[in-house]
Each structure stands twice: as C-alpha cells, then as structure tokens.
C-alpha cells in the first residue's frame, strides 16, 4: 500500500477496498460494521436520540487527542446529553490528497479505541478524497443514535428558577489546547484537551436521580455560550459565582496573556447539569466520583430575574453581565 492517500483511494476501486480493510475494518471491527450499503441494527424499544456533527480541527492531532477521538466524543456526548445511551455511530471522511496513510491509521485507531471506551459500535463509514488544497488535511463527520433511558427527560428549555448549575470540570481546556497547538502565539503550557466520552458520567448521575432538567455538553463557544443558550431556551436568568468556576491554572495563565475569557473557550469533555436545588449535592458527589469529572463544581443558579442573561457575581461583591463573545475569539493587548 502507498504511504500517502491518493485520489484513487476515494474512487471506489481496489485501492479503496484496501484502505477500508487495512485501516478502518481492523480498528472498528464489530458484528454490525457493514460491508453493504447500510448497516442493519438492533434497537431497543422506546425513544431514540440521534445527532450528527462535523469536525475540522487544525491541527488534527493535539495534546490529549486527535480529530478521530474528537469525532467520536462529539457525537456520543451530544446523544448522551439527551439521556440516551449512545449505541451506534457512522463516520464519513473527507481526506486531502497526499495525507499520510500512517496518520490516518493513528486517527482510525484512536476512533476505534474511543468507541470501545464509550461502548458504541461504528457501523458504517464513507471515504472521499479531495484534491490537494480542496480541504485542510482531513475532515470527519459522525452521526449516531442511542436509546433514551427510561425516566430521563432533559432539554435546554427545562431550566427553572431555583435550580442549581453544575459544571463537570475545569472550563476551556480544549480551546486552549488547540490555541497552543497552532503555535501562533509561541506560548508553552502543560495543557491537554479535556476531550472524553461522557456517557458513563451521565449514566452514573441518572442512576442516582432522574430529576435533572438540563444536561448539555459545552463544546465550541464554551460553558459561557451554553449558559446563554439555556437562559434563552428556558426563558430564565442565570447567575454564576466567578470564584466558583473551576479553571486550570495554565488555562488561566494563557487567558491572561492573551486577554481571553476561559468561559468562552471550547470544551470537549465538559457537561453542564441543571437540576433542582435538592438534587444538586447528589449530582455533584456522583460526578466527583467519576473519571473525567473529578473537579465538578456548583457554579451558580437559575433565577427569575435578568431573563435571557448570564450574570456574574464578582470579586468585589457586585453583579455584572457575562459579556457575550462577538464571533471569532481574538487575543487582545488592550
């Protein structure tokens, strides 16, 4: 086999088959993985959650993961946030001509490993090769489905005044990791992406209580954006205590260097739970006992004032609005 991807690999020819056999089948192997036009699946009765997500991260490999791991986590976490156990995912690759096969193998290996960890099957896939310069190295789109577990009923529209807001760990790590990995600002810091599949965390919480109003994963836009979305969807206000928000010291350092707000940096392994006050400690303690959410914290509550807004309680004992990001996050000197 050649050591770079060529247009022939995307042509449906013997090269395509070779690529599928060597790279994808070996890493994704499971009884449902189809060689036909569509996978045929067993589904339990009840409601299904389904989601899709595209991934174009640059660089495609970064401390704590790569685009493959990210593509699995992104979709399984979206499904999990609906209270559904992710079961099957599909993946579609668009690869730039000339991409090293060895790198593709690493990405596929990481997808397989993450899927096994998340207990989902990769059941169908597609590979297209685009001409040099038509895409930036490799893009992956995944889609997935999962069974909603009985009694779970969450939505961004269900937050109620008095509810507590719990974040499952320190914020902004993935965004910060990518920023540093691009090396545009010549900053070094020991920060790894928080990228992780989170169904087991959600399942543990739902095993303790199903009385959860909102579960959201904070991805691009970070926890700040998720909170604004929930405030809008639920038509409530959100009040958070700036000193309660867990932030990795390194992330804080990078943010102060570049004048960025950690609440708006992307996460790929962080959940926001909104639950009635009497459930909050249960949720918190359960999360703290799980891998990837040891640093969970209650950061604030839902209010019936300042509707649609996120209000921060600050170090001087005053309240202020969390400023909204306007588009692209840019480092500032002033």
């Amino acid at each position: 086999m050649e050591n770079i991807i060529t247009l022939a690999h995307g042509s449906g020819s013997t090269q395509t088959n070779e690529l599928i056999d060597r790279i994808f089948k070996s890493n994704f192997d499971n009884p449902y993985l189809t060689a036909d036009d569509a996978a045929v699946l067993d589904i339990e009765e009840g409601k299904i959650a389904m989601s899709t997500d595209g991934f174009i991260v640059s660089p495609y490999e970064f401390p704590g993961g790569n685009i493959g791991k990210l593509a699995v986590c992104g979709t399984v976490n979206d499904i999990a946030c609906m209270g559904a156990k992710p079961k099957y995912i599909t993946c579609s690759y668009i690869i730039e001509e000339g991409f090293p096969v060895e790198e593709l193998e690493k990405i596929a290996e990481s997808m397989g490993e993450t899927a096994r960890k998340a207990d989902v099957r990769i059941v169908a896939g597609d590979t297209k090769v685009a001409g040099k310069g038509q895409v930036d190295k490799i893009f992956i789109t995944t889609a997935g489905i999962g069974n909603i577990i009985e009694g779970a009923n969450t939505s961004g529209a269900f937050a109620k005044p008095g509810d507590k807001i719990i974040v499952s760990g320190d914020v902004g790590r993935h965004g910060c990791t990518i920023l540093l990995a691009r090396n545009e600002f010549n900053i070094d810091a020991d920060i790894t992406s928080d990228c992780a599949p989170l169904w087991s965390n959600i399942e543990s919480v739902l095993n303790v209580t199903k009385n959860i109003h909102v579960i959201r994963d904070a991805t691009r836009g970070g926890v700040g954006t998720v909170l604004y979305e929930i405030a809008h969807q639920s038509n409530v206000g959100i009040s958070i205590d700036s000193s309660a928000i867990p932030i990795d010291p390194g992330v804080r350092g990078v943010c102060s260097m570049l004048g960025l707000e950690p609440l708006y940096l992307a996460c790929e392994g962080r959940l926001v739970f909104i639950a009635p006050a009497e459930e909050a400690d249960k949720v918190l303690n359960t999360l703290r006992s799980c891998e990837n959410s040891e640093k969970a914290a209650i950061i604030g509550e839902v209010t019936d004032e300042n509707i649609g807004k996120v209000v921060l309680y600050t170090a001087v004992g005053a309240k202020t609005l969390l400023s909204r990001p306007s588009g692209e996050l840019l480092p500032r000197i002033c």
């Binding site: 545009e184 260097m257 570049l258 840019l330 480092p331 000197i333 002033c334």
Partner: peptide
C-alpha cells in the same frame, strides 16, 4: 494585535479582507 481585526475601515474591516483572501495574522 487581535484588537484591530474587527475595527471598521471605510469599506470593510480586516476580518472581511481576510475572507476575501488577504493575508492577515494576529500576533501577540
């Protein structure tokens, strides 16, 4: 500096120029 990228000029800002193919790079 990133601060200047969104400042409007008479016709457009630097972000829009970048979308039109200009080479604009924020630095620290």
């Amino acid at each position: 500096f990133g601060d200047l990228i969104k400042v409007p000029g008479t016709e457009m800002n630097l972000a829009k120029a970048r979308a039109n193919g200009a080479a604009i790079r924020p630095v620290y």
